[in-house]
Amino acid sequence: MAYSDKVLDHYENPRNVGSLDKDDPNVGTGMVGAPACGDVMKLQIKLGENGIIEDAKFKTYGCGSAIASSSLVTEMLKGKTLDEAESIKNSAIAEELALPPVKIHCSVLAEDAIKAAIEDLKSKK
């Protein structure tokens, strides 16, 4: 299977790899997927004073498309409000990365990770 140039770029130079302090009240953590399915995504967002996402970090265990999807999502999230973040759809991720049909689930997982991180953040407030 051939990957698109965008997937390769994100895979080879992943943006925003790392972890934020999960106990920080302004940090939301979403962990989705399962080792059994071959992918686990951890996505963290940090909300600034102004209600804008000022930082996002990820770690992903999974195929190249899963890594690229989560890397792309961290870029998309920065500078957005929670409402805007919540409206990011998997189709936008899949389209941006030109994912083949067998890899669409990676973009779905990334959307789930966003939702889970926001939920975690809201539960802390």
């Binding site: 992943p14 790899v17 972890s19 962990m31 989705v32 997927g33 399962a34 080792p35 059994a36 399915c37 686990v40 995504m41 951890k42 770690k59 992903t60 265990y61 890594i67 689930h105 779905v108 997982l109 789930d112 889970a116």
Partner: peptide, 24 residues
């Protein structure tokens, strides 16, 4: 492994078999 959340958990001493995964 730098990228892997599982590796991070392993290094933190988390027993992965005990984690309840959100299967999808």
């Amino acid at each position: 492994r730098e990228l892997s959340p599982l590796w991070e958990m392993f290094k933190d001493g988390v027993d992965l078999s005990k984690v309840e995964w959100a299967a999808h």
